[in-house]
Design a protein around this nucleic acid. Sequence first.
DNA 1: GTTTAGCACTCTAGCATTCAGAGTGCCAGA
DNA 2: TCTGGCACTCTGAATGCTAGAGTGCTAAAC
Lengths: 347, 347
Amino acid sequence: MQMALSPRAEALLKALIERYISDGQPVGSRTLSKQAGLELSPATIRNVMADLEDLGLISSPHTSSGRVPTALGYRMFVDSLLTVRPLDSAEIYRMGDELAYDGDPMHLMESASSLLSQVTRLAGIVLVPRQEESFRQIEFLSLPAANRVLVILVTSSGRVHNRVIRVDRHYSAAELVEAANCFNDLYSGRPLSEIRNSLLADLQSDGDAMQRAVKNATDMARHVFADSESSALDLVVSGEANLLQIPDLGDVEKLRKLFDAFTTKRDLLHLLDRSMHAESIQVFIGSESGYQALDECSVVMAPYQADGRVVGTVGVIGPTRMAYDQVISIVDVTARLLGGVLSTEAR
Amino acid sequence: MQMALSPRAEALLKALIERYISDGQPVGSRTLSKQAGLELSPATIRNVMADLEDLGLISSPHTSSGRVPTALGYRMFVDSLLTVRPLDSAEIYRMGDELAYDGDPMHLMESASSLLSQVTRLAGIVLVPRQEESFRQIEFLSLPAANRVLVILVTSSGRVHNRVIRVDRHYSAAELVEAANCFNDLYSGRPLSEIRNSLLADLQSDGDAMQRAVKNATDMARHVFADSESSALDLVVSGEANLLQIPDLGDVEKLRKLFDAFTTKRDLLHLLDRSMHAESIQVFIGSESGYQALDECSVVMAPYQADGRVVGTVGVIGPTRMAYDQVISIVDVTARLLGGVLSTEAR
DNA sequence: GTTTAGCACTCTAGCATTCAGAGTGCCAGA
DNA sequence: TCTGGCACTCTGAATGCTAGAGTGCTAAAC
């Protein structure tokens, strides 16, 4: 189906999409003919456009007004016609400054997301995956309030989960330290999911065979591991408000669905999970994403690395009519910057 | 200026506003005359309405269409005409179930905010004030990564702040425990702000007179106290998406400003701070709030208590045309439920 | 003196009509 | 294979019209 286009048709499609992206108006043959670079009469252009329409790359909103790219058209544009506009180094430098790292990776993700939304004037998203996380350290603190213990879990990425739990009796500080030590020795470096399952299994066997300290630790740890599973914190979205003023997304009902997707996060997580496994930048255009809420949106995501391993993905979400040439390089740079911060940091 | 209205004018105003709230259409004299309870001809009603308009309580969008309440009209309605519709106990019970408390007060606030937004179909907000917080406990954990220490601060409300800091050399676990003990002994129960200032003063004096352990603790604690000042986490907003589908807030530009206010939080914090000092429910109508972004919105807030002391405020934000009778009692009940959870919990 | 009926007036919302402009498709000629 | 020309279509803005809803005012009725 995807027969090769003639070079002329390609050039025309490229010019049309670029024009549409900057104007937002359907593009007609006259307009395109006046455009420098193509010395063709409107009539010729009309013929070519008719071919492009047959191929499903462009369409006209109504019988007789200019053409508009379809999702397929954008796809071809992004895949093979686009000339990405690299950022100048001053810009990159400025962006790097904005990425503040204070030790809390969550803050870093938030600042990356917010940076993206400011620079692109779209919504920025950062996915902080949990599946790869492993256990680093647990600690139990006795609280003054009766029979309360604060459980603190530190994961390999440096994220910290804490939770206050009620316990059945008072534990001395020494007991708590011992329990933590046992647990740390037992599970250090193991993936969270594995530990979670293991804890669940322990709960069922309920063996009296276990040492007391280990048993205590297991009981208390269970709560915070249950928390760490919740993926609520894994996705950071910012700059949603930018989407409000984009005329392309005028349909209030669709906009509401989109915002719902931001708060629910479920669908987005699935989608972004896919982009994790890609080598480089990925662009989901319109309904390609498979989620209704994103029908009129495109998502541009780039995986970022820490010490050579992909640990998450970062990008933006905006209308299908977005300035891909700029957005792609901005997302690319952000992913690199983020990777840089994470990697130097770990050294 | 606020001369007493005749009972008839009051009844009329009340009927008009109730009608407008449920319909969203300007209300004319005929409509009002047909309404049960008032046996008056349209002409009479027109006379009264003219008076109400002179008083600035209602206005007509254009020369000849029905009347619409002004902010002043809503104010009088809310202050003296409104018959609050109490929730039935089943409803209250159901809401109580939704307020899950797992030991983390932040989760509780989020669930309260989300509960409000679901029940009212508006945006829910919860203010968690910081000024009243006092110090409960600090702890330092050594991390495997070179020269990193995790600082954990627990405040009186049970909130936990953590931060990873770099230190100049390796500290042994024993050193860290000692430092924490010193610090805890020194500052237990004192207000955060006081400690913050004290730490700042110490930094300047830089006295060699201080014990080494105390000095270490002070240096490390400084970072997390700086964090705890940031008020970013103090305001929880949820259900913003609900506002999108409200026809009254059709102006996209205003909506964008409103969403910006949600993410900036600064203005909202100021406003809500005011509502903290009120005894009971407060309603800010339209431009009364003094913030442009809230021009076409009303804010209904109720302070909530923990053990008899007001510790925060909870409520909703929506269009000026909202069902005050229901919203007010929903907010009221939520504040009580929240207070209940916080108080039983502390016992 | 309050209330009501009647009347002239005003403004909106919807509808049909018109008209210019932009764009298309197609055909015939270069 | 490209281009010029022509008939056709569709949109969007402007216009005029009408019905409906609502008002303000005045004079009569209670």
